[in-house]
């Protein structure tokens, strides 16, 4: 937990998206339907738009603030509420003030406009409560616990991302793929998002993964997918940790893109019970030679397998195979 040199709110601030409107050249407008965002997942999926030529998006927001605490404690004056959208990969930050919609100061609403040319992938939206504290204006006294994600291209408002799996011939593929001609699949972590390339030259593999055959094939196919996923998680973790930027004082930094997201997701399983920053420092120190990198490998494998749902899939595959065996015996 961070320690602040001034009093902050303990109650929580919530924010929700209430409307999403797109605008294009020649004043073309489109209002997205409410299935384009999810209050549960806290994601807006702009890929749900019918038109692809939009240039700006206006997001309507509503926020609630723990007013009673502000009144009873009396530390804060000049309270304002701001929405801030950031995306690390495009170094873009946009802020908009919300306005109070009732007398109590509990409900706030407003809009924030983003330009498509300023964003690439996923932007984060947070709402902050700002106030004057001890004579200092502009103090952040509370923020939303979890950011909303504005996904520029997703067709469904889901936080978790679908893995990009594509089938290509390794023999006829790029030079890089040709060097893996015997492998059933490889994980490519070089792009904006990690991707799995399935080798179409590996006979029967594609059918197996698509799980369209017999019960046995389906069970094995699922197992294979889980294993592939575990491979991906292991590969992306190593890519992310191997490519860290380090501050002058030796503090490693979380990357802004998916690499950062992967690290935040896996670190609690690799170094349990520590803050994200501490865990990152620990893993980085071990990798760069001080401490044991080898001892950490089982934990990385464990974290990857957990993300890929390997234990559960394996358990159910074993059960399925048993049942199939019993059915054949009977």
């Amino acid at each position: 937990m961070k320690i602040y040199p001034y009093p902050r709110l303990t109650g929580s601030v919530t924010a929700r998206v209430t409307a999403v409107r797109l605008r294009g050249a020649g004043d073309v407008r489109e209002q997205l339907e409410s299935r384009s965002w999810s209050v549960v997942e806290q994601v807006v999926a702009l890929g749900t738009a019918e038109r692809d030529d939009w240039q700006t998006v206006r997001i309507g927001l509503a926020a609630t603030v723990p007013t009673r605490e502000i009144e009873t404690k009396g530390h804060w004056t000049d309270v304002s509420v701001v929405a801030v959208v950031t995306e690390g990969t495009t170094n873009t930050r946009t802020a908009a003030r919300l306005t109070s919609t009732d007398d109590s100061g509990r409900d706030w609403s407003g809009e924030i406009e983003l330009d498509r040319a300023d964003h690439l992938d996923r932007a984060s939206l947070a709402v902050h409560v700002v106030a004057m504290v001890d004579g200092q204006a502009g103090r952040v006294i509370a923020s939303t616990d979890q950011d909303w994600l504005i996904d520029m291209a997703a067709a469904a408002p889901l936080r978790e991302r679908q893995l990009d799996v594509s089938t290509v011939s390794f023999v006829r593929g790029t030079e890089w793929l040709r060097s893996f001609r015997d492998a059933p699949w490889v994980v490519d972590t070089s792009g904006r998002m990690p991707a799995v390339r399935l080798n179409s030259d590996f006979e029967g593999l594609v059918a197996l993964v698509e799980s369209s055959g017999s019960q046995v094939e389906r069970a094995v196919g699922e197992m294979l997918l889980a294993q592939m996923c575990a491979d991906v998680w292991t590969a992306v973790f190593h890519t992310a940790i191997g490519d860290l930027e380090v501050e002058d004082d030796g503090t490693p930094l979380f990357p802004a893109d998916w690499r950062g997201a992967v690290l935040r997701e896996m670190l609690p399983d690799i170094v349990p019970g520590r803050s994200d920053e501490d865990a990152l420092r620990e893993v980085h120190t071990r990798r760069t030679g001080e401490g044991s990198w080898a001892n950490l490998q089982p934990r990385i494998q464990y974290a990857a397998a957990r993300r890929a749902d390997v234990p559960r899939t394996l358990a159910s595959t074993v059960r399925d195979l048993e049942r199939i065996a019993q059915e054949t015996d009977a």
Binding site: R97, Q136, V140
Partner: peptide, 12 residues
């Protein structure tokens, strides 16, 4: 910047 909201005290 972790405690002061520059967007509020010095808006663009």
């Amino acid at each position: 910047a972790a405690t002061l909201m520059y967007d509020v005290v010095a808006p663009d």
